[in-house]
Amino acid sequence: MIAFENVGKTYPDGTTAVEDFSLEIASHEAVVLVGTSGSGKTTLLRMINRMVDPSSGRVAIDGEDVAGLDPVRLRRSIGYVMQASGLLPHRSVLDNVTTVPVLRGTSRREARSRALELLETVGLDPALARRYPSQLSGGQQQRVGVARALAADPNILLMDEPFGAVDPIVRADLQQEMLRIQKELHKTIVFVTHDIDEAFLLGDRVVLLRPGGVVAQQGTPQEILAAPADDFVRSFVGADRGTRTLHVEEIEGRRIVVDADGRAAGVLEPPAGGAARA
């Protein structure tokens, strides 16, 4: 379990990134921190692996204050995926993925065998293992970044807007791949994004932040959509614009889901043995 206990962060120039934030994240839970720029979401994420130390309060993993842990060893025990993949350009895909396991003492042979398995896990052809990052597409680089984060088999996976730099089609593909991986591996995931649709898709629980790391609302996507806490939340999730208000129209014998502006949002089709679904 990850616990934020009244954490705050004020920088030397007086800027307050996080005022007073508390949250518990259960083991194997995928929690998404979502908010605009200045909401402190990336600062909070980086407190977990001590890339940022809080000015007040504490962050604990399984009851142990991370401030008392060696930051290098801590970071090697936690998977971390960033927006620009962060791959080492002078090292092959295989060597990028094996970096942390080798640093932790795993033999190169064992680490490389595991890396090839992970490339398949993230949907990459192992034949790409000998290529360098510059020889890969943006989407492929992000998949390698996920494989590298998983290489040491961490319990915790931190993801800082990992799909923000790729085009919408690749992003949607990566999101679905992430859902598949989580279903298979059951990691504790803390995911940062500014995209509410991505948050609702990937999060077991979503934490919507105001500037300064103030929690506007937290809950499952269904809970937030069903009962937005206030106008800020309603605006952020699009409820005030009708983009989350859907109804069904029958057109040429098919049930079409339509939004408040009359735009088609999907088709309802009956599942194998039950009622219709989108």
Rank of each mutant, 00 (worst) to 15 (best):
A3C: 05
E5I: 06
Y11C: 02
A17V: 09
V18A: 06
E29S: 11
E29D: 12
V32S: 02
L33E: 04
V34K: 13
G35I: 11
T42K: 12
T43Q: 03
R50C: 00
V52Q: 01
V52G: 00
D53S: 06
R58I: 03
D62R: 09
D70C: 09
P71M: 02
R76K: 13
S77T: 05
I78M: 04
M82W: 00
G86S: 07
G86L: 04
V93P: 10
N96S: 04
G105C: 05
S107T: 15
A111V: 07
E117F: 00
E120Y: 01
E120K: 14
A129E: 06
S134Q: 09
S137T: 09
G138C: 03
V144A: 07
V144Q: 06
D153C: 02
I156E: 03
L157I: 15
L158H: 04
E161V: 08
V166E: 00
P168R: 14
Q175T: 11
E177A: 13
E184I: 01
L185A: 03
I196E: 08
F200G: 11
L201D: 02
R210E: 12
R210M: 08
P211W: 10
G212C: 02
V215L: 02
P221Q: 12
E223T: 15
E223Q: 15
H247W: 05
V248M: 04
D259S: 03
G262R: 04
G262V: 03
R263H: 11
R263M: 07
G266W: 08
E269P: 01
A275H: 10
R277G: 15
A278F: 14
